[in-house]
Amino acid sequence: MNIEVLIFLDALFKKNVVLYHLLGISPFLLYNIKLKESLHTGLIIAAIMVVSNVLTFAAERLFFIPLGFGHLRILFVILSVYFIIYYSKFFLKKFSSELSSLFDNYPEFFYTNYALYGSVFLNRGEGLNFISTIISALGMGTGYLIVLFIFITCKERVDMNKKLSLFSRLSRELVLLGLMSIVFISIILRR
């Protein structure tokens, strides 16, 4: 199989950002997001992941490494990803107020989402080239979208059945994520 396809599939299933690296879980449990909103949120997160990976890769190679500012890497990545997230809201506002309102209604999904920041650190750590970074970020974003969509679908059905107490709900949702994680890992084992 082509190496780019393998990188994409790895990021999508085997090393899924949520179910393997366990990043960006808290917003899943924190909000009772609607199915349509989850689709929009997942798409926005995927787009932000790709943009932030591209921009941080370029800035690191063009400025930070040549100028010897490697020790400021953490500060630079955190601030640049935050700014991309922050200005994405205003960018989206030009096209749809419904999409930009997601940033206000579900801030944990964007501003402090470990998956968004973690994807940049993961790709840097792997030492991928520019094209592979884009493909990996796309795979991670798509993986996040798929997991979010499946999780919210299941969560809506469970919540619809009966009213659960807080800890019962949290425990059930964590078990659901655990089962999804087993399924995603076994997809790759059979590939």
Binding site: L19, L22, F167, L170, S171, R172, L174, V175, L179, S181
Partner: peptide, 14 residues
């Protein structure tokens, strides 16, 4: 493995 993190955390919360 990673699935165990979710399952054990669910048990601890219970």
């Amino acid at each position: 493995s990673p699935p165990g993190a979710f399952l054990v955390m669910a048990l601890v919360l219970f």
